[in-house]
């Protein structure tokens, strides 16, 4: 009886934990393989424990170049998309204007369009316009698909914003600039940071759109894709594990800071 009661109280949590385990299963494999010394180039099975991959992460020729390039693209695309998207979010939440519905549609559609369609149509544009494919076409593409996600993220934060706080600031001798600087921005900032993190992770991880628009430029996902045909160097798993750890620290760090701030 007791067991039945316990089960009925906790089965949801039990299922939840199982689903989490499912989410972590491949991560465990990635972490494990990062310590693997593969028996052959095309083998994905665990063979022998080694630290070599970690001590020599840039072993396979171009991988680290690809990672650096992905970080560069991600950084530029994130900054641009965050600025553009935040401005749009402010306009949408704070102002009434004609063409609002059309703007919303323009923001929604990229999220509802399969990447393969966006990537291919953008490629067609670049080809038609004679734009040489490479680093900057990838940046342009990444900014394009990140903007919508930035807009919705910042918008969510802004629409929960109490505009009386700005009125209070104005009432307390802060002009428009200082009101924005001292009240609006600090309060919306967590939303902007979240949007930027999201944009970076979308950009860093994108393969499909990048594959269409990169020409000969190789990002990390493209390197992995190419390597998958010839055999994956175990260092790829080192990068995967490192990304996972960095993300974990970042997210935990901001949430601890937030809790302290609250």
């Amino acid at each position: 009886m007791k067991l039945g009661r316990w089960l009925s109280d906790h089965w949801v949590m039990g299922v939840g934990v199982l689903v989490l385990a499912y989410l972590f299963l491949p991560i465990a494999v990635v972490v494990g393989l990062s310590f693997n010394e593969p028996s052959s180039r095309l083998s994905y099975d665990f063979n022998k424990f080694t630290l070599d991959n970690w001590t020599n992460p840039c072993g396979p020729g171009d991988m680290c170049d690809a990672v650096v390039r992905s970080v560069q693209i991600g950084f530029i695309a994130t900054v641009a998309a965050t600025v553009l998207g935040t401005l749009m979010a402010f306009a949408l939440v704070r102002h009434r204007f004609r063409g609002r519905a059309a703007t919303n549609l323009l923001i929604f559609l990229p999220m509802a369009t399969p990447e393969v369609v966006m990537g291919s149509s953008l490629l067609a544009l670049f080809v038609a316009g004679g734009v040489p494919l490479g680093f900057w076409t990838v940046v342009i593409a990444h900014v394009m698909f990140c903007v919508s996600f930035v807009v919705v993220t910042v918008k969510a934060r802004l629409s929960g914003f109490d505009s009386r706080l700005e009125e209070a600031a104005m009432d307390l001798y802060a002009d428009e600039f200082h009101t924005f600087r001292k009240v609006t921005l600090p309060l919306v900032f967590p939303g902007i940071v979240a949007a930027a993190l999201l944009a970076f992770s979308l950009s860093f991880d994108d393969f499909i759109i990048t594959n269409f628009n990169s020409g000969t430029t190789v990002t990390f996902p493209m390197y992995v894709w190419g390597a998958a045909q010839r055999g994956i160097p175990p260092q790829v798993n080192v990068i995967g594990t490192a990304m996972f750890l960095i993300a974990l620290l970042l997210v935990l760090g901001t949430s601890v800071r937030r809790r302290r701030a609250a």
Binding site: D162, R164, A168, A169, D171, V183
Partner: peptide
């Protein structure tokens, strides 16, 4: 002129 707002509008940050 200064105002005490309804539900105060204190700066949460």
């Amino acid at each position: 002129v200064n105002t005490v707002f309804q539900s105060y509008a204190l700066f949460p940050h």
